[in-house]
């Protein structure tokens, strides 16, 4: 189905998040860390938008701005047509139910003193959605069943579960409020492959059943490719390429995407791929950026790249890229 036929559930425009970094030296002005710069993307209902990029590129910052855990510095986030940045608290509360987040660490994100059942009930209590106690615990049990746990697990504490099971509890908690969009920040990164596969399958099943929309963050391209309909590649706080999941593998455009793909370990002992080496390390996000963020490391860098910032542009087929090679 062409994307234009789909409903946009969230419209993100020029989203920017800066952090002030206090200088070590006394009296010096605080510096600005550009964690997220000028990110614009439409998120379609029922899709999984994968976000990939290296450590520090702003993936979590993006996710946290979407669920309002971070206050964006600039830009806009429209949810079902309504601007949610700067929205009044009581109005926002209803919308917050619709947008949930699942975090990476299944070990620290659960209160160790609460049983699995109570953990799943908690968001319902906080948002006062089911007030009848019995009904609520019934619903909690249903949710635990949805994620592959059952009656015997209801009264257990987090330390009595494995990592994969804890992540299931986290997912059940996110589902408790009947959300429409879930931001998943590295939800399988701490899990073993065999358990990771179980949880990835669960995400896919739940999406089909409830028509959920996911923003799925990971640094593992194989995982992202597996779960996503479309993939956004981030570098230094910006989206540098955005396309459907198939194209990123078949037809990567941005020099950074190509380098990233070439660095992924092979799929077999016979797969000898040529690595595209980016010289140097990722530059610091502190201070103002002139020119393309990849300019210093890019093998195709031109004069123009050092002075101007390439914008993310659609090439007509929905494949967006921010690079002067394609202008």
């Amino acid at each position: 189905m062409p994307m234009s036929d789909k409903k946009v559930i969230m419209k993100v425009r020029n989203l920017t998040k800066e952090f002030k970094i206090r200088s070590k030296k006394l009296g010096e002005k605080p510096q600005i860390l550009h964690a997220l710069s000028d990110v614009s993307v439409d998120i379609y209902e029922g899709e999984t938008l994968g976000i990939i990029g290296e450590s520090g590129c702003g993936k979590s910052t993006f996710g946290k701005c979407l669920v309002q855990l971070h206050q964006a510095t600039a830009g806009s986030v429209e949810y079902e047509g309504r601007q949610i940045l700067g929205m009044k608290k009581d109005e926002l509360k209803k919308i917050k139910r619709d947008i949930q987040m699942v975090f990476q660490d299944p070990f620290s994100s659960l209160d160790p003193r609460m049983t699995a059942g109570k953990l799943v009930e908690e968001p319902m209590v906080a948002h006062k959605i089911i007030t009848d106690k019995k009904e609520r615990s019934q619903r909690a049990l249903e949710l635990l069943k949805t994620v592959g746990l059952d009656v015997q697990h209801v009264h257990r504490y987090p330390h009595e579960f494995s990592g994969g099971q804890r992540q299931r509890i986290n997912i059940a908690r996110a589902l408790a409020l009947n959300p429409k969009l879930i931001v998943c920040d590295e939800p399988v990164s701490a899990l073993d492959v065999s358990i990771q596969a179980q949880v990835l399958n669960l995400f896919n099943e739940l999406q089909k059943e409830y028509n959920l929309t996911y923003v799925f963050i990971s640094h593992d391209l194989s995982v992202i490719k597996h779960i996503s309909d479309r993939i956004a590649i981030m570098y230094l706080g910006r989206i540098v390429e955005l396309c459907d999941a198939e194209s990123i593998y078949a037809n990567p455009l941005h020099p950074y995407t190509k380098a990233l793909l070439s660095a992924i370990p092979p799929e077999s002992p016979f797969d000898k791929r040529e690595r595209i080496v980016l010289s140097g390390e990722i530059p610091s996000p502190i201070g103002d950026q002139v020119g393309c963020p990849l300019a210093k490391r890019c093998g195709s860098c031109m004069e123009r790249c050092k002075k101007e910032m390439p914008q993310l542009k659609d090439r007509g087929d929905g494949h967006q890229v921010a690079c002067f090679l394609y202008e």
Partner: peptide, 19 residues
């Protein structure tokens, strides 16, 4: 159970059940 880049999008992974 390893997802592979060459896999089709959103296929089911063969997980190992249990722990």
């Amino acid at each position: 159970s390893m997802p592979k880049l060459s896999d089709t999008v959103k296929g089911e992974l063969k997980a190992i059940p249990g722990v």
